[in-house]
Design a protein around this nucleic acid. Structure first.
Lengths: 340, 340
DNA sequence: TGACAGTTGCAAAACGTTTTGGATACTGTG
DNA sequence: CACAGTATCCAAAACGTTTTGCAACTGTCA
């Protein structure tokens, strides 16, 4: 730990110039250095525990090997972890590292944070939002390569990735249909976001596809949390023609449905089957019986976002692409045949 | 967006040297520049939208203004978000930015990641672990300033912050005692971690302090998840002398206790009162009635960790300190007077 | 033997800052 | 009028890399 060892120390120790060291370590193919010297230099470098200073090389190369990840409230949700891990893993594999920054809902703060990232010369930015339609990007981003995570721009001008909400709902509802249910209710969301419309659409698609009639009487909506879920489920389950299957907007809502069923003395899945959306371990695996649900692929989306970003940065320019990820069904114990 | 504007562009535009620009922008106090010129330079810089290149200044100053945050599986838990946000907020306020990296359980990967952070010349590292005792730091860290988040070293050689498990349990159990309970059971954890011992200790302390006898018959332990929680709760609630209050190792375990109570036809809190630990919104607020629990202050611990780290980095050397954070009681609806 | 091509190595410039050690002009003093 | 002292500014070096252009050497061929 005497002196910080840099490229000159290696050069001195190996008896060559810094130029040669640099060539030996980086340009594997370059014929500017004798294979023997190269090998020697590498050995010496390893011996000394040489680690290049990335500030210096970033400065010289105009490439920091840093990616910015800016996000809004999404970091307060249980999904944040998976998304960020996906992004990180992908970045790591390609020699990049992530600078994570979150702004809550404050656009002023967000702009300052973006400027900070730019001062650190990030090579690109992953812009993660709670999925709303028509996100508009802050002007600060300028020409910096960017991709949207869990959101999309109205004009489709930059690449983005979101879950396929429609297909997710179809999968969920079809799980009920395949179990034999024909009177399937939905506990929907009142928020005007893509997930609401997409999942409702998927619900209708699945009914249609299997020759079941859509019945507005079987759909209610509320705030997508457990308390509201319990209330609207209570109401729905007390309608004269009680549904035997319930498609819930989210796992949290489904938890409310469990509570409602318990309050009414209905057993799951014998009396009523339930499926959710999200696959929140904390809830889906904890409920009793376990909740059958479709998983939102946050890890995979995080991965995709930085992979795409790095392709943009390192490769030739290509057209923006809007990606949709499908959501697999996770079967636990909340779906069974309908009572007769 | 013609040419990237650097300090020279500002200098040229302001009709002064780069030296003067640098002085004008940084050294507010230095008398090396005439107040008028300083003001002028600043105006010009703002006009041009000048933003210093932190790679360059980092290189020159041997200070990157970057902090590394390395973590293990903790990023897969629901707590990660809050911890990281706390750390980030504190960093941001002092002009630093966070590089987040997670290694799962792979020490090999972790070492490589730490080396990467060092290549980026991070000024210090927050090392976040699931709270185990006697964490040992990877040798790679060398002399880099480090603070431990949610863990502590055996030798107390570096600063660390953990929740005060004992006090947390005392708070929780006292909530039951104050409501009038005298037969209080505990659903404990079988893992050999500080949380297990600390919370058990706190449970005993609280009983002692209020003249209640500790009764081993009222304590069972299991894996700290909902399924196991249900089972051990079922067992405990069927003992001849049924406890009227239950102190649960965690909110997930408490959720299992809710299920057990429901299975036995016991109402909460009329027949049995329950308190947990963690304050996981997803569970505690969703249960019905809401779960009274003590909150683990992850956000605050994250904040403390980087604040302390920055003090170490920027200030004079001080002795390592082991910090314990207290855990406030969050009252919802699961505690009431015991049945008579 | 001399010209030439190919190989291998190096010195030096550049990336965008910060800071040191002057230089210059101005102020007042003896 | 010379002089020290002060205020203001600047040129140049440095941080640790990468890369360009050039030099030295080797061997080949006429």
């Amino acid at each position: 730990m005497a002196t910080k060892i840099g490229i000159r120390e290696v050069a001195k120790a190996a008896g060559v110039s810094v130029t040669t060291v640099s060539h030996a370590l980086n340009d594997a193919t370059s014929s500017r250095v004798n294979p023997q010297t190269q090998q020697h230099v590498r050995a010496v470098a390893k011996d000394l525990g040489y680690a290049p200073n990335r500030l210096a090389s970033g400065l010289r190369n105009q490439r920091s090997q840093i990616l910015g990840l800016v996000s809004d409230e999404i970091t307060t949700t249980p999904f944040a972890g998976a998304m960020i891990r996906g992004a990180q893993d992908a970045a790591y594999e390609r020699g990049y590292v992530l600078m994570v920054v979150n702004s809550g809902r404050d656009p002023e703060l967000e702009n300052r944070e973006i400027r900070t990232l730019q001062q650190h010369q990030v090579d690109g930015i992953v812009y993660a939002r709670m999925y709303h339609q028509g996100v508009s990007l802050p002007a600060e981003l300028g020409t910096l390569p960017t991709v949207l995570l869990d959101a999309a721009t109205a004009d489709r001008s930059i690449s983005s990735v979101v879950p396929d909400e429609v297909a997710a709902a179809e999968t969920a509802v079809e799980a009920l249909i395949k179990a034999g249910h024909t009177r399937i209710g939905m506990l929907s969301n009142i928020d005007n976001i893509p997930a609401t419309h997409g999942r409702l659409q998927g619900y209708r698609n699945a009914l249609d596809r299997h020759g079941l009639q859509f019945n507005p009487e079987l759909v209610t909506a509320g705030v997508p949390d457990t308390t509201a879920g319990r209330e609207i489920a209570l109401e729905l389950l007390q309608r004269p023609e009680r549904p035997t299957g319930l498609f819930c907007f989210s796992d949290r809502v489904a938890m409310g449905a469990y509570q409602a069923a318990a309050a009414l003395g209905l057993r799951i899945p014998e009396d009523v089957s339930i499926v959710g959306v999200d696959n929140l371990e904390l809830i889906a695996a904890a409920l009793w019986p376990g909740l059958t649900t479709v998983a939102l692929p946050h890890y995979e989306m995080g991965r995709w976002a930085v992979t795409r970003l790095l392709d943009d940065i390192e490769g030739p320019a290509t057209a923006a692409v809007q990606e949709m990820f499908s959501c697999p069904l996770i079967e636990r114990g909340s779906v069974g045949p309908p009572p007769d």
